[in-house]
Amino acid sequence: MEAWRLPVSSSIRGKLISAGYTSLSSISSVSSSDLARDVNITEEEAFEIMKLANQASGSNSCNGSRSLINGAKNAWDMLHEEDSLPRITTSCSDLDNILGGGISCRDVTEIGGVPGIGKTQIGIQLSVNVQIPREFGGLGGKAIYIDTEGSFMVERALQIAEACVEDMKEYTGYMHKHFKANQVEMKPKDILENIIYFRVCSYTEQIALVNHLDKFISENKDVKVVIIDSITFHFRQDFDDLAQRTRVLSEMALKFMKLAKKFSLAVSIYRTHYYTSLTLTRLSLSRGHTQPVTLRLALILQSQVVLLNQVTTKYTQGTFQLALALGDSWSHSCTNRVILYWNGDERYAYIDKSPSLPSASASYTVTSRGLRNSSSSSKRVKMM
């Protein structure tokens, strides 16, 4: 049960959510005095809230235990389940290769990079490509695009949608010469209609929307990808209490994980990142990854959740370095982390963290038609 369902006044409910207490477990894990301080209420009110939360948790405990037992799986079935998970292509084969064929379901993927590197372009590309019909190897789903910065460009989405339809028609023409092929009935207008866009202007709106995603996706089961551009924007500006921010973000990451498992979706998180090209190039070469390998962004809810992140400066060993925002605790919240960086005039993607994919890098380019292979993708990553 979520905290917003508690029988309390709307003002206290809003304070709880704003302070990061979005689930019953988060309320039960603190003392009444801490809850009163964080939510800015009296200790008596905090005690009553905790009492209601404990009662609600107790009423659901039996069902929760039964659900846990019934949900047991063996590792062999899990392996076959992972192999059969669908993926979303990025339209860049080199990138898809290091991602194992594209963005996969049931993972949360964070994508970080410096401004202008193409994070939003990837987000728009995924929101279009997730709609490729199943007969063409796609998922035939819809996309949720959560825009915190106002960077979504509908004109750009139309360009990429038109290119996607043209690519499918070209593929159909080729197949007609050799095999029986399906006709392309999708139009760019249909693709834009299937991108569900949310503009959030504060961290409270962002928290409220994330809390509502479970219900929304349950009612719209054809949603296959959730893109958040970017996860960090409001949390870097409006929070002075870092402990509170960590708690709020941890609750949000937990919700993404639950959505991923429940709906077999992909969650992709984007943020701006400022690692230098030199640092990443050395890191890539030191691990022996000199050839492009396939890359894919991860999916949740049979849709993917892509989280975009921003960058900040970090003081390490006597020098300031650019690093992904939100600190080390947030870095453990996502299953996969992909870092985008410049190597000279070339854009590269580097898999910095993944439980199933090896660390690898691949070049890509952003064209008028969307993401594509770099013309010099056969080159080795050079030392700056």
Rank of each mutant, 00 (worst) to 15 (best):
R5V: 05
R5S: 10
G14I: 06
T22C: 09
S23V: 11
S25K: 14
S29W: 11
S29K: 13
S29F: 10
S32W: 02
L35R: 07
L35W: 05
V39G: 06
N40D: 14
E48L: 11
E48V: 08
I49M: 08
Q55D: 02
A56K: 13
G71Q: 14
M78P: 00
D83A: 13
S84I: 00
I88Q: 06
S91F: 14
G100A: 04
G101M: 05
I103R: 01
V108H: 00
I117Q: 08
G118M: 01
T120H: 10
Q121D: 04
I122A: 07
G123H: 10
I124Q: 07
Q131K: 11
L139F: 13
K142A: 10
I144G: 00
I146E: 10
D147C: 08
M153H: 09
E155M: 10
A163C: 06
E166T: 08
E166C: 03
Y171G: 09
M175G: 01
M175P: 06
K177E: 15
H178D: 11
Q183V: 09
E185C: 02
N194W: 11
I195A: 08
I196E: 09
V200L: 04
V200S: 01
C201L: 10
S202V: 13
V210C: 02
H212V: 01
N220F: 03
D222F: 04
V223M: 03
K224V: 02
K224L: 10
D229V: 01
D238T: 12
F239T: 09
D241V: 01
R247Q: 15
A253S: 12
L254K: 14
M257G: 09
K258G: 05
A260I: 05
A260P: 00
V267S: 13
S268V: 08
T276V: 03
T276N: 12
S277C: 10
S277W: 02
L283P: 05
G288E: 10
T290K: 11
T294I: 08
S303R: 05
L308S: 07
Q310T: 07
T313W: 03
T313D: 12
Q321L: 14
L324R: 01
A325R: 03
A325V: 12
S331C: 03
V338E: 06
Y341K: 09
W342P: 01
N343Y: 04
R347A: 04
P358L: 04
S361G: 11
Y364E: 15
V366H: 02
S368K: 03
G370W: 02
S374C: 12
K379Q: 15
